[in-house]
Every structure is written in C-alpha cells, then in structure tokens.
C-alpha cells in the first residue's frame, strides 16, 4: 500500500501528520503560555516572538499553536461523531429498507434543505455556546452527508452476489453490515472523512470568527482572526496567519483524500 505513493499524497500525508503532531504536543512546543501576556500590542516579528504579538500582547506563534490544537480537536471530534452517527444510520437504512429507510432519508432531506450554517446559528441562539455543545451541533448537523454517502454505497453493495450468499447462509444483520458491506464501502468513506474534516475546520473557524464558536481566552484559528482583525486597517497582518494555517491543512488533507479516492475508482461514491 505504501509503495507507489504519489508525491502529492506524500506531501499531503507529511503536512497532515505535522499538524496533528503539533496539535498533540502543543504545550511542549509552544514557547509561551497560551494566555500569557508577554509583550506590547501587535509587536512585529522578532527573535523572541517569531510571528510577533497579538492584540493584547500575547505571543502569536503560541496562540497559533494552541489555536491549531483547539481547532483540530473540535473538528476531529465533530467529524468522528458525524461519521459514526451518519454511517451507522446509513448502513442500517440500506440493509433494512422499507419504511425505516424512507423515514430516515426524508428526515435527512429535510435537514439538508436548510443551509448548515443557518441551522447551526438558529440552534446557537438558544443553547449556551460551549465546546461539547459545538461538537454535538456540528457533528449531528453534518451527519446527513455521511448518511447519504454510506447509504448510496451500501445500497449498491447490498445486491451483490456475495451479500446474497451471506444472507442465504443465514448470517445476521450485524454480520452483513460489518463483515460484508463495511469493508467494501470503506474507501469512499475514508476519502469523504478527509473532506468532511476540512469542512469542519472551516465551519468551526467561521463560527468562532462570528463570535459563536470557541470563547476566549481559549485560542482557535477563527478566534485569532476575530481578535486581530482591527489591526488589518493599520497594515498589521496578524489576522492573516490563520489563513495560511487553514489553507495548508486543508490542501494537505485534500491531497490525501484524492489519493485514497483514486486508488479505488470502481467504488466511487458521491462527493461533496
């Protein structure tokens, strides 16, 4: 599997790994404490502060590292929640068929008929904004997409001869799902996982930027933009570093996802 790995995918894997490593080891890598005020407001970059300081004099590199940790953690947790819920319901719907499939699918159609951001904003107007609630809201709202993908892939696999054979053998529904369908549906699901993870990174950053995501003093990439955006009109680019971070992370994960998807073109599911 690791032979013949294209150069683009290798680069993608390297940077994705690097970002996750930094996220895990943030307290060890970061030069200062997360909310520690160490200098003047918006100092330019220097030997002590490689990226300069932020709007209240915290080290920007430290904020970026901790911000990456928060952003990546929330995005990963929300993606996992969305995939576990979405795929299990999707596979179940495909295998059961009938009214269960109909009810679930129409429910998903309804949720998808409203833009996710708008629905999330409506919910966040009511509930308190905390990290677990953010993960829950993002994960459940986005579960519609893994649901659709896993259902459509599983419906195709469900009519294959080997599944039919397993059914005739008298295997239970659990065996059919986990031993027959899931292994064959894994490739498009893994690729989709990468794309949904990117979407979650963009989503949580957007919410934080709007002031409805991660709350200060916790750092996250969207929040860093919100905190430093007033500097932009004075020509201070502190708010633009998250753009570089988000873009490189997103492109790396995209490169990996493309590679995973291209390896198995025969089972290409819907994307997007």
């Amino acid at each position: 599997m690791m032979k013949n790995i294209p150069i683009s995918a290798a680069i993608g894997l390297f940077f994705t790994g690097l970002y996750f490593f930094i996220a895990f080891a943030a307290p060890l890598i970061a030069p200062y404490g997360m909310a520690e005020v160490v200098g003047d407001v918006w100092e330019p970059s220097s030997a002590e502060h490689l990226l300069g300081t932020d709007n209240i004099g915290r080290d920007l590199l430290t904020r970026m590292i901790y911000g990456g940790r928060t952003t990546i953690f929330i995005a990963a947790a929300a993606t996992i929640l969305s995939f576990v819920t979405g795929t299990s319901l999707g596979l179940l719907a495909a295998v059961m068929g009938g009214w269960a499939d109909q009810a679930l699918s129409r429910m998903v159609d309804l949720v998808m008929s409203i833009p996710t951001l708008i629905l999330a904003l409506v919910i966040l107007a009511i509930v308190p904004v905390t990290v677990p609630i953010l993960i829950l809201v993002m994960g459940l709202l986005d579960a519609t997409r893994p649901y659709r993908l896993s259902r459509s892939v599983a419906v195709d696999i469900n009519v294959m001869d080997y599944v039919e054979a397993a059914k005739l053998r008298g295997e239970g529904r659990r065996w059919i799902i986990f031993r027959e369908i899931l292994p064959n549906a894994l490739s498009p699901l893994v690729a989709e996982f990468g794309l949904r993870f990117i979407f979650m990174v963009l989503f949580i950053s957007t919410l934080s930027f709007l002031g409805l995501g991660v709350q200060p003093p916790l750092a996250d990439w969207g929040g860093i933009v919100k905190e430093n955006k007033d500097g932009i009109v004075y020509g201070i680019g502190a708010a633009l570093y998250p753009a570089v971070a988000i873009a490189t992370l997103a492109i790396s994960v995209n490169l990996v996802a493309d590679w995973v998807l291209n390896r198995t073109t025969s089972l290409k599911g819907g994307r997007g």
């Binding site: 950053s205 969207g222 009109v233 680019g237 753009a243 988000i246 997103a250």
Partner: peptide, 19 residues
C-alpha cells in the same frame, strides 16, 4: 476552496484596501 470566506475577505482587505 480551502480558505474560509471570512479569511479571503481579510486577505483581500489587507492587500487591496490597505496596501
């Protein structure tokens, strides 16, 4: 597509409007 809308907005402000 890999950069959120608001960041594209600020990049544009930074280079076109400020610089």
């Amino acid at each position: 597509v890999s950069i959120p809308e608001f960041l594209i907005g600020y990049v544009v402000i930074y280079f076109i409007s400020v610089k």
